[in-house]
């Protein structure tokens, strides 16, 4: 099963992957599509990824988090068209104690944003914009 999916993400199913009874804590981060971005109304988002490289990097990221905090990690990132309010990314961390779960979960989403080759395009009433770091670049 890949980390990059094009269907809606089933959050409960991912949580279930890390909720074995030895874990006293499960921390879930959900990134979802918001209605306003940089002062513009957003109609929906389109995500694109360099899929083979993103898969490799996410596998590596999960492995590093697991060994660093001794936790269990499950995550999915969705690509393609995503409607307002729907989840674009879900990170679930299961751990004996909550501190490690919070810390590892935060590290996973931060590292993903910084290093994994995925881009979003905001589709707005006034045009489409690729989000490249701090910049919104008109698409087309």
């Amino acid at each position: 099963m890949g980390f990059i999916v094009s269907e809606p993400i089933d959050v409960r199913a991912i949580e279930a992957e890390v909720s074995q009874q030895s874990n006293g804590a499960v921390c879930t981060f959900i990134g979802q599509v918001r209605t306003r971005s940089r002062g513009r109304d957003v109609a929906y988002l389109e995500y694109d990824a360099y899929v083979p490289m993103a898969e490799k990097m996410l596998a590596d990221l999960v492995e590093r988090a697991c060994s660093r905090w001794d936790v269990t990690v499950a995550l999915k990132h969705r690509i393609g068209r995503i409607e307002l309010g729907a989840a674009s990314v879900v990170v679930c961390v299961g751990s004996e104690h909550r501190a490690a779960a919070f810390e590892a979960c935060r590290w996973c989403i931060d590292t993903l944003k910084e290093t994994v080759p995925i881009w979003k395009k905001e589709v707005c009433p006034d045009g489409e914009f690729w989000i490249e770091g701090e910049d919104a670049v008109k698409a087309g």
Binding site: G31, Y47, A49, Y50, P52, M53, A54, K56, H77, S88, V89, I109, L112, K113, E114, T115, V116, P117, I118, W119, K120, W130, I131, E132, G133, E134, D135
Partner: peptide
Amino acid sequence: NEEYVQSTAVVNEGDEVAFIPPMSGG
């Protein structure tokens, strides 16, 4: 070939070179 490199890296026959603009996953 799906690994980040410096811009001084030499490319070889058949390599896949990706140019990665600032990302916005998440």
